[in-house]
Design a protein around this nucleic acid. Structure first.
Lengths: 233, 233
DNA sequence: TCCAATTTCGAACGGACGTTCGATATACTT
DNA sequence: AAGTATATCGAACGTCCGTTCGAAATTGGA
């Protein structure tokens, strides 16, 4: 999924009637804003920062955004909608629950790799949104959560029937989201390799646990010692 | 571990010669600051907020802190030192690697339950610290990471010998930290039950994975449907 | 080419921020 | 009771913030 497809995936009524050049510029603004927010946090990013980074006047920004929070909402709305759309497409494809889980993990991580800054702003700045905007984004997140819960429940109970998720199924889902979302804190492609490999390891841990590895240990380290530190900076 | 023991666990030279009443007040300040930071983020918390929450003048705060960032550093330093101290004590006790992992997870979650606000400020505001302070806290975190990596490596390789952690061991450790740290985003005692139960479920997932549950499924839900939403607010 | 819609901008406003300073009040030691 | 260290405070400073406004420049279609 390209950057442009994020933009075209979800459009507000105002955007739909806008000229292509306007949409293109809006994309550029949101992308740069995402980079700044990912770097310093939404509260610490200033509109002056953004204007300077875009070689644009401060007042000019307000032609595209009603206010600072509206900027964050637009960024979160289109990014999360694109992620959810991608993952729902993946989940609709046939396969065993285990296969689906693996594809969903890989899909999420690939989206992360392609849109690191945007997804980070979505993942960590939900609480910076005010009431109405908050609820809109929360509903998208909830749909994603329910989708993954459903798959995880099927992994445990088998694909037959539509068993309701138990409390422990929901907890397991939250654990999985923790693994996925924490990746912002440590992942560095040059140190940890491609995200597809991370996805395989994560899926293995979730499905079989650590003890499963013990029985298959030995000669597993293809690229030894490329990642020493646990956190980049 | 009580709140007071967090304070006495690690003292700066200035604190060591301070009167007990001073230390007590400093505790109160840091605790309230942690609550505000956990709620709105460090950048959004203002010194005026903190003064008002403590019924204290703005200028009065600067008798205890050189500046705003020094406040964050003191909070992170003593909180993280207390957590690391507790976890190192736990890790020093005998037992199989599996038992040690379980005890460490429970210990971390219990610390989280007792010091939610402080630990949240530590977990999510590392990047708000400047160079020198950043490195001090980073080193504490690194020690914690290495300790858990060692245990996880032993779970996979068995307790004999001191095998160096492979790349995949380190990745698994980062996954585990993700599960642990993401709990700030969803946990609510009234919805999800005591943290000890969460610890057991987390340990089960890490050790045996989801498929292990399939074989033991049935009649597992003691307290059904107490947690519907995935996120509180 | 002309016109209307779109886009950009400089300048400014009011407010909130972190921090400082000198003075005053309180607590502990002797 | 005196004296010293500790604690608290009101008021202010300079800076930076989000946002606004009217005017100027630019663009795209007829």
């Amino acid at each position: 999924m390209t950057v442009a497809s994020i933009a075209s995936a979800t459009l507000t009524p105002r955007e739909r009637h806008a000229r292509p050049s306007t949409r293109k510029k809006l994309d550029r603004l949101l992308m740069k804003a995402a980079a700044l927010i990912a770097d310093k946090g939404f509260a610490a990013m200033t509109m002056r920062d953004l204007g300077a980074a875009l070689d644009m006047s401060l007042a000019g920004l307000y032609h595209y955004f009603a206010n600072k929070e509206d900027l964050l909402f637009q960024l979160q709305y289109r990014t999360f909608s694109a992620l959810l759309g991608q993952q729902e497409t993946i989940a609709a494809q046939p396969g065993t629950p285990e296969e689906q889980l693996g594809r969903l993990l890989t899909g999420h991580l690939q989206f992360f790799a392609r849109h690191t800054h945007e997804l980070k702003a979505c993942t960590f700045e939900l609480e910076s949104l005010g009431g109405a905007h908050y609820r809109v984004i929360e509903e998208i997140r909830r749909r994603y959560y329910r989708m993954l819960t459903s798959v995880i429940t099927q992994v445990i109970r088998g694909p037959t029937g539509a068993a309701r998720a138990t409390r422990q199924d929901r907890h397991a889902t939250l654990f999985v989201f923790g693994m996925l979302n924490w990746i912002f804190m440590w992942y560095d492609r040059t140190r940890h390799g491609p995200v597809e490999q991370i996805g395989v390891e994560m899926c293995d841990l979730i499905l079989h646990g650590l003890e499963h590895r013990r029985r298959h240990a030995g000669g597993r380290e293809a690229h030894p010692r490329l990642d020493d530190a646990y956190q980049r900076r």
